[in-house]
Design a protein around this nucleic acid. Structure first.
Length: 576
RNA sequence: GAGUCAGUAGCUCAGCUGGUAGAGCACAUCCCUUUUAAGGAUGGGGUCCUGGGUUCGAACCCCAGCUGACUCACCA
């Protein structure tokens, strides 16, 4: 039954659907049956395998009704299953060969709606318009939708009435996935990308591992962590900002190659490229250096492009990006020289500040040498690298976990991979000198004291592990969400996350029904009073009895609530 | 955190200089032949984000707030 309170809260269409739901039950049809429904084909299988010269035979398919075109005793409907859409042809006398035409006239034409799940069996054929369709012999209601879906129609690539509000799309991803073509495909691709990377690593014999998400010291990156608390231990714990230090401990422990797809958490801003939780993949391989890792990374990405797109080239916006090996390699200092004509090699902090002023690069007083160079690069060079390019040899101050360059102690053996003007991967010859590592951590602490709230914490257990000896190792990290954005051509991280973080939905505040009844207002009328705008008991204080009386009587009539209107003096009593 | 713009029917959006709230799709009723973003006719559906203010009169103007989008700054 639909209660008066529901009648007030639901839209007309929702009420109609609930009434259809009741009507189905009265006909003895369970709108939410428990039994499984056997499916013989997916819609795409049917469309792929249908051949006009052969009898396809009977099929059994199930999915959502996404559109209906009803014409007397014959109708067409569109069914959406997990693989795509297929047209159904529903003929009254095929579906109901006997005298009783209820299933067609009442159930199909009146009680079913767009969004409902049904299963059908029937024969595959091609209509006069040339569309491969299923002629429905049996129809089973599998699940009734009591909320109408947005209707999105499409013809020749032109989309009509698209469900486009970015907030609603992300908040109600289930609706987005159902009605917007291509959304599913993005997420299928995401999984394909991850699977491709995983098989590439597994084929090389590297081991996928799990390391702690709850960490006593949030290490391995410079970022503000989420803090939580463990009751039994009575200690603070942090959600991981990176898994690097744990993977390196495993290299100390004797694994030759380990990797992890790591959900990381950073308590920082949110925008089109940042979500509080995101996925990074990190891999560490013993006895390798960053030159080897560049070759390896190239091979991995070429493989991913081939696995996912079937080609090493892909269009991103106006650009065509080529993942064919080898990628361009250039040192950071050379990149800056190339784009600004200035050779910063060997410059000290005052000189670098001068360069920044000259290039109109914004800086502040807390910035050290590494940060200054990074600013110049970020401002003048980064965005120009459209084709995959390795930028190598970063300043030592920026890379506290990275080994110093074999030829220049001012630099580190680090590379970042730029594609389409953005950083996609980051890799080092890992620092395995425990004494150097401790000093670098201490440098970070000094930065923290200077006000850099992203400087790293010191993880003494990690330093201890290095003291036991870590083989020369190269590690690489890749931002999976951003890689997926690149490969799927999506412009925001929200488009490649199924459930991006959102501000909580806030319903308008309302007092509980009991608060009203305690004040002597009959329960039946509470929802009506709230609908009239008096959502809290206190807001009712200033109400004029005459006006309130008219309002509630009006709502009773308008929404066909079937309540007996109160007398004016009764309403006065509510306000007393 | 700053700036710009937006919030009107279930969805997408009009709404002029302040003067009775609109369209398409969806929905309902009726008609109907294998139709295809089906068609025809008729109809129902609104807290114009919220609260103040100005005004004879506010969806529209002013102020405050809420929510969102975009741009910028920081982080991946």
């Amino acid at each position: 039954m639909i209660t008066p309170a529901q009648r007030l809260e639901l839209s007309e269409q929702e009420i109609l659907r609930r009434e259809s739901l009741e009507a189905l039950k009265e006909l003895g049809i369970n709108p939410y049956p428990a039994e499984k429904y056997d499916i013989s084909h997916s819609s795409t299988e049917i469309k792929e395998r249908f051949n006009d010269d052969e009898d396809f035979g009977e099929v059994s398919i199930a999915g959502r009704i996404m559109g209906r075109r009803i014409m007397g005793k014959a109708s067409f409907a569109e069914m959406l299953d997990g693989s795509g859409r297929i047209q159904l042809y529903v003929n009254r006398d095929e579906l109901c060969p006997g005298e009783d035409k209820t299933l067609y006239n009442t159930v199909f034409k009146k009680l079913l709606d767009i969004g409902d799940f049904v299963g059908v069996t029937g024969k595959v054929f091609r209509t006069q318009m040339g569309e491969i369709s299923v002629e429905v012999k049996t129809l089973t209601v599998l699940s009734k939708a009591i909320k109408p879906l947005p209707i999105v129609k499409e013809k020749d690539g032109q989309v009509y009435d698209s469900f486009s509000d970015p907030e609603l799309r992300a908040r109600q991803r289930y609706v987005d996935l159902v009605v917007n073509a291509g959304v599913k495909e993005t997420f299928v691709k995401r999984t394909k990308i991850i699977n491709s990377i995983r098989s590439f690593f597994n084929e090389k014999g590297y081991l996928e591992v799990d390391t702690p998400v709850l960490q006593p010291i949030p290490g391995g990156a410079a970022a503000r962590p989420f803090i939580t608390h463990h009751n039994t231990l009575d200690i603070p714990l942090y959600l991981r900002i990176a898994n690097e230090l744990y993977l390196k401990r495993l290299i100390v422990g004797g694994f030759d190659g380990v990797y992890e797809f790591s959900r990381n958490f950073r308590n920082e801003g949110m925008d089109r490229t940042h979500n509080p939780e995101f996925t990074a993949m990190e891999i560490y391989v013993a006895y390798k250096d960053y030159n080897w890792m560049m070759d390896f990374t190239e091979a991995m990405l070429e493989r991913v492009a081939l696995d996912v797109n079937g080609s090493t080239t892909m269009k991103v916006g106006d650009q065509e990006i080529n993942f064919q090996r080898p990628f361009k390699r250039i040192s950071m200092i050379d990149a800056i020289k190339e784009h600004t004509g200035i050779d910063i090699n060997g410059m000290d902090v005052p000189q670098l500040r001068e360069v920044c002023d000259k290039l109109e690069v914004e800086i502040d007083d807390t910035m050290g040498k590494g940060k200054l160079i990074d600013e110049i690069f970020g401002e003048k060079c980064e965005h120009t690298y459209i084709q995959p390019t390795f930028i190598t040899d970063y300043p030592v101050e920026m890379s506290p976990l990275c080994k110093k360059h074999r030829e220049d102690p001012e630099l580190t053996e680090r590379f970042e991979l730029m594609i389409n003007g953005k950083e996609i991967a980051n890799a080092y010859s890992e620092l395995n000198d425990p004494i150097d590592q401790l000093e670098r951590f201490q440098e970070q602490m000094k930065l923290a004291d200077k006000g850099d709230d992203e400087a790293m914490f010191i993880d003494m257990d990690f330093v201890r592990s290095l003291e036991y000896g870590m083989p020369p190792t190269s590690g690489m990290g890749i931002g999976i969400d951003r890689l997926v954005m690149l490969i799927t051509g999506m412009e925001t991280i929200q488009d490649v996350l199924l459930f991006p973080q959102m501000r909580p939905e806030k319903g308008a505040e309302k007092d509980a029904v009991s608060k009203y009844t305690e004040a002597g207002i009959p329960e039946d009328w509470v929802a009506v009073i709230q609908k009239a705008g008096y959502r809290t008991l206190s807001s009712l204080k200033d109400a004029k009895p005459g006006k309130l009386h008219q309002e509630v009587c009006g709502l009773n009539k308008k929404h066909k609530l079937g309540l007996t209107n109160p007398k004016l003096d009764e309403v006065e009593g509510w306000l007393a």
